[in-house]
Amino acid sequence: MSRRMWIFVAMFMVLPGMLFTVSCAKKKVASETGLQQGEAGKSAADKARAEELARQKALEEQRLKEEAAKQGKIAEERARLENEDIYFEFDSATLLPAAQEVLKKKAQYLKENEKLKVAVEGHCDERGTNEYNLALGDRRAKSATQFIMNLGIPASRITAISYGEERPMDPGHTEEAWAKNRRAHFVIQ
């Protein structure tokens, strides 16, 4: 990022600066032939310079806007990879249709971003004993991992980690809380 910015500064600020230096030299030659002409030439050059600066400023603003939008979209996609969990039924590691749709999007994103590695966390609700839920969370993480691998993402880029019932999303003891806690969650590593 910052390196690209520096290249940009060099291209658009330093190079035009050099151009002005050259025009200044010309002006000096002109002043030798006549003051009036020189004065007029100077104001025309100033005007052109101001216009050029404004044009460049607008270009830069546009570029920053596009860059920000691009970054925003990347951040949004990245965030979605991490924030959009998939959910399971009680005591089940079977991928529901909705979960499969979400996983397809995640696989696509991982394809487009080849350097990303992810951990897939498997979680359970508090019902059932915690040792059994560690095994169940492992199966959930592995279901999601296997699905993504079947879509062409190499195993070296995905790690399954079970948290069992140890890290609930919602600490409540209701059906609603339990439904939120039976999940697989992606984390970029």
Partner: peptide, 9 residues
Amino acid sequence: VAYQGINIT
């Protein structure tokens, strides 16, 4: 014992 996956119970 630290294999991939769970190492429990």
